[in-house]
Nucleic acid binder design. Structure first.
Length: 588
RNA sequence: GGGGGCGUAGCUCAAUUGGUUAGAGCACCGGCCUGUCACGCCGGAGGUUGCGGGUUCGAGCCCCGUCGCCCUCGCCA
């Protein structure tokens, strides 16, 4: 038996190899038995090659070929032949040739797979939980392999770009200490110190700041982060950040570096030229116009403030609301039936809106349940403010600022979905920075100020004096990178002055003793000549999703957890031996 | 924890809204086929309708409970 070692991959052979003797290995993607001929498409991660078996090559070989089934692992030796005239396939790279089999080595058989791996057109994907259970089969699917290859290319481009720019890749600990604020920690019990716990990192935040103090002024890391919070389509309990920090820089330096990096990644991975510098908008502007701090800028449907027009109406809902804002949906009045408008009303209710007022604009009048509350002058001013044309649909929410932003911001996305304003097949990427975030947010539940970004974010210089007196008005030197409605990254200039850091801790309600207990090492470090520094972390999983055109984060992670944070393949999390618990000082 | 969707053959789905023996495509098994590439043709096997209870002459369908999966709100410095 000849060697099973391949001479070529399944994506490699062309007309130039016709006549050569080759060996291919891979998996049987599809099998076609014609009585006198057997064809298989052999698949590996590089592509497909058609192999043809003819009875003239010996009965044994032919009978063996007839035993082949999907996902059998084989090696095939044979001669590269040109396909018969008229039988070429011009839609695949290897479509002009085929391998005429002389020898077949079955490396491993495969039972009928629990689901279709071949991604034959017209065959629906099996349920995700079944695919996750057999993830090693799911990962054989070409489109799944494409995503992991894309992820590799992205990480490679990042490493090359940053290394060329003088950045150092430094690793930081997985086993650290729990710090207050932020997400729920994954905890690891200490065997050596029973009763004490490590926390897995939510991000390498403090370590990278300490690296700045240590003089490693351009640092990056492809860092795994763990957060024990409920999952979403774009959230996993463990995920990967491109973590990044620089010293002796201001905000624009960080933004500029990331723009260069992200532009390179898009060029390398999907051949898209992103215009730089990226668009910039303030947090206030984003909330006002898009109702979100991560606006999807691929379509319009901007929100328009009409609060000042409310008093001139006779509509109590408008007159008594803190904010009245609207979205004009051009030319769609006819498209939305009463039932669909009811659905939209139901949709905004989940964001706290008590209702959704609608107006269908006609040439001479407004068609709306609230038309009777709008005097002629009022109607005219709404038309003008919203630049309404006949055929437009106007949708209003009147409520607190939070509720208005949330409901109209999400309604905007829902409208885009319903009106199919986004073509997912197009390489359409709208990238923007969101700047000037509030430094603090008031937590109504806990009745205290909390950091909007994190406690190490520097307030803007002009606002420092108001930190205690007018906490809510203090803006941060913080920035989010937003792509197509996803928060792709976020960062800030950090506090490098121990007094400012102590004041921030105080505003957050940490006593000096608590601050020293939890962050003494940081406060000390800042005293030892800490340089000004700042950085950002990009969500690499989300970035891969965006580049790969998927909305499911599990598609870009080789072995993801399901919504319940369970690994359906290994069964993790699982029980452990009571002996293990005893060693850790946990009950037995 | 709240809201929504789903669970029927190995896979993807259907079942005229409570009525005969739960069907189809793919996959699987047997047979035929000299150029297919979602090959084709003939035949076959395959079901605890997630699970448990209830209503009914009769339940895949209705009711109660329970388990699981997805989306979403809360949460995610």
């Amino acid at each position: 038996m000849a060697s099973f070692r391949r001479t070529h991959t399944c994506g490699e052979l062309r007309e130039s190899e016709v006549g050569q003797s080759v060996t291919l290995s891979g998996w049987v993607n599809t099998y076609r038995d014609h009585g006198q001929f057997v064809f298989i498409d052999l698949r590996d991660r590089y592509g497909f090659t058609q192999v043809v078996f003819e009875p003239g090559r010996g009965k044994e070989l032919f009978e063996a070929a007839r035993e082949l089934r999907a996902e059998t692992c084989v090696a095939v030796r044979g001669v590269v032949g040109r396909r018969l005239p008229g039988k070429e396939r011009h839609d695949m790279p290897t479509g002009l040739i085929e391998v005429q089999a002389a020898e077949l080595i079955v490396l491993n058989r495969c039972p009928t797979p629990p689901f279709d791996v071949s991604e034959t057109p017209g065959v629906e994907l099996a349920n995700e939980d079944l695919r996750l259970q057999y993830r090693y089969l799911d990962l054989r699917r070409p489109s799944q392999q494409k995503l992991l290859i894309l992820r590799h290319q992205m990480i490679r481009a990042i490493r090359e770009y940053l290394s060329a720019d003088g950045f150092l890749e430094v690793e930081t600990p997985f086993l650290g200490r729990s710090t207050p604020e932020g997400a729920r920690d994954y905890l690891v019990p200490s065997r050596v110190h029973n009763g004490a716990w490590y926390a897995l990192p939510q991000s390498p935040q403090l370590y990278k700041q300490l690296l700045m103090v240590a003089g490693y002024d351009k640092y990056f890391q492809i860092a795994r982060c763990m957060r024990d919070e409920d999952l979403r389509a774009d959230r996993q309990p463990e995920f990967t950040q491109l973590d990044f920090e620089m010293s002796f820089v201001e905000q624009d330096d960080v933004l500029g570096t990331i723009e260069g990096l992200v532009a390179r990644v898009f060029k390398t991975c999907v051949d898209v030229d992103l215009p730089t510098p990226f668009a910039r908008l303030s947090y206030d502007d984003a909330m006002l116009r898009y109702g979100s701090d991560k606006p999807d800028l691929r379509f319009g449907l901007e929100i328009v403030d009409c609060t000042d027009l409310a008093p001139a109406t006779e509509f109590t809902v408008f007159k008594s609301a803190a904010k009245v804002r609207a979205i004009r949906v051009p030319g769609t009045a006819e498209k939305f039936s009463r039932k669909q408008l009811d659905e939209l009303t139901e949709y905004v209710r989940q964001f706290g809106a008590k209702g959704l007022a609608w107006i269908k604009v006609e040439a001479g009048k407004l068609n709306s349940p609230i038309e009777k509350f709008l005097p002629a002058a009022s109607q005219a001013s709404f038309r003008e403010r919203l630049q309404a044309e006949p055929g437009d649909l106007l949708l209003f929410v009147a409520d607190s600022e939070d509720v208005v932003c949330q409901s109209l911001g999400n309604l905007r996305l829902e409208l885009a979905r319903r009106l199919q304003l986004i073509d997912p097949s197009r390489k359409d990427f709208k990238v923007a920075w969101v700047l000037d975030f509030p430094n603090f947010m008031f937590d109504a539940e806990e009745q205290r100020w909390v950091s909007n970004h994190h406690p190490f974010t520097a307030p803007q210089d002009a606002d420092l004096a108001r930190m205690e007196s007018d906490t809510g008005s203090v803006k941060a030197k913080a920035y989010d990178l937003v792509i197509n409605g996803y928060e792709a990254g976020g960062g800030s200039i950090r506090i490098h002055n121990p007094e400012v850091q102590a004041r921030v801790f105080a505003v957050l309600g940490l006593t000096p003793e608590q601050a020293r207990e939890k962050f003494g090492f940081l406060l000390d470090a800042l005293k030892f000549g800490a340089p000004p520094h700042g950085g950002i972390a990009l969500g690499l999983d989300r970035l891969t999703m965006i580049l790969g055109g998927t909305t499911n984060i599990r598609d870009v992670i080789a072995f993801p957890k399901n919504k319940q944070a369970r690994d359906l393949m290994t069964g993790a999390p699982g029980l452990v031996e009571s002996r293990q618990l005893k060693e850790l000082g946990l009950n037995s």
